[in-house]
């Protein structure tokens, strides 16, 4: 019985808690991608770098606050700086839209052209981020590191295994829940949100209504700025910030959005968790959990790790391919342009 509890705790500690946190971050990122796809009708390759830009600005503001001696108690100062990061990112995205995307929208450019355009934007943002904050790794999490440490948990329960819950994990999950609830309220209950859904449902018809297309586009970018910056900051708090890592995040984020069904917000969230849980379960060494669960004679000698963590992006890819093969519109019905 104790062994069983130990196994559960180990599973929670090494798989479920980290995957939930990672899944929430991916879900927020994928929501941004899916909104752009649903409304502006292209896959935005610059999304990872938008996240990086928002995070970089948030880090700069965090440093500024820290230099002024402003803190947020046990919570990271970055949460105070987040609204500023979102605001600056929103300006950047609106500026990009005005200077780049609007031109192609007026030309009624094909989605594939917009994808290539977004790659160009990606490279520029890539450079911009490195120019603003540099290429090094930045750790900007401050405040309390743990809600409960492994030792505290062990002393509390008397089990051999410890369950450490980091502040960043709790913040990630709580923030993600709040952001997603606010987004769905916005999309389903407000006129602006309904205009966005109408635009996504049927662009031709939306253009023939009292819906102002430029305003819908503007609100979309504002939401994307908020989602991308929040996702980026949460990921940075949980791990660390490095521009290249954020660029690499593009793959799992797109995998999440596509797996769930591009253009479908609920799908993006589902996809985020599917990808995160698969990545973590495939790259986790199951030896510990199995040793607790199996009789001593069957206890594994090896690590029982299906893939080395180096291959975690391969897992995203594999899921992507499998879902596209068997359900091309995603787990929940998305749309295809």
């Amino acid at each position: 019985m104790v062994d069983f509890l130990n196994a559960i705790v180990a599973l929670l500690n090494y798989v479920i808690v980290p995957a939930t946190s990672y899944g929430a971050q991916l879900a927020l990122g994928a929501l941004g991608v899916t909104l752009i796809y649903g409304i502006l009708r292209f896959s935005n390759f610059a999304h990872g770098d938008t996240m990086a830009f928002g995070t970089a600005i948030t880090i700069l503001v965090t440093w500024l606050f820290q230099s002024w001696g402003i803190g947020f108690g046990p919570l990271p100062t970055a949460l105070l700086a987040l609204p500023f990061g979102i605001a600056v990112t929103a300006l950047l995205l609106l500026g990009t839209d005005r200077m780049v995307y609007r031109f192609y929208r007026r030309q009624k450019a094909a989605p594939v052209i917009l994808v290539i355009v977004s790659m160009g934007v990606m490279f520029i943002m890539n450079g911009l981020v490195r120019f603003v904050i540099g290429v090094q790794e930045q750790n900007f999490a401050d405040g309390a590191r743990f809600v409960i440490t492994a030792t505290q948990f062990r002393n509390l329960t008397g089990l051999d295994e410890g369950l450490a819950v980091r502040t960043s994990t709790v913040i990630t999950v709580v923030t993600a829940v709040i952001v997603v609830a606010a987004l769905f309220w916005f999309l389903n209950k407000t006129r602006s949100g309904k205009s966005m859904r109408a635009f996504s449902d049927n662009e031709d018809l939306a253009l023939l209504s009292g819906i102002n297309p430029e305003r819908v586009v503007m609100i979309t970018w504002l939401l994307v700025a908020a989602l991308a910056t929040t996702a980026g900051v949460l990921y940075g708090l949980d791990k660390s910030f490095k521009p290249f890592t954020y660029y690499q995040l593009l793959l799992p984020i797109f995998a999440s959005a596509v797996v769930g069904g591009l253009g479908n917000p609920v799908g993006a969230i589902l996809g985020g968790f599917v990808v995160a849980f698969s990545e973590v379960t495939f790259t986790y060494a199951w030896k510990k959990v199995l040793t607790y669960l199996l009789p001593a004679s069957l206890a594994p000698d090896s690590l029982v790790q299906l893939l080395s963590t180096d291959y975690k992006f391969a897992v995203s890819f594999a899921i992507l391919v499998v879902v596209l093969l068997f359900k091309p519109t995603g787990l929940l019905k998305g749309k295809s342009v």
Partner: peptide
């Protein structure tokens, strides 16, 4: 209800 233009709810 989507049809009429310039509704109050259109601005953030």
């Amino acid at each position: 209800m989507m049809v009429p233009a310039r509704q109050h709810g259109e601005t953030l």
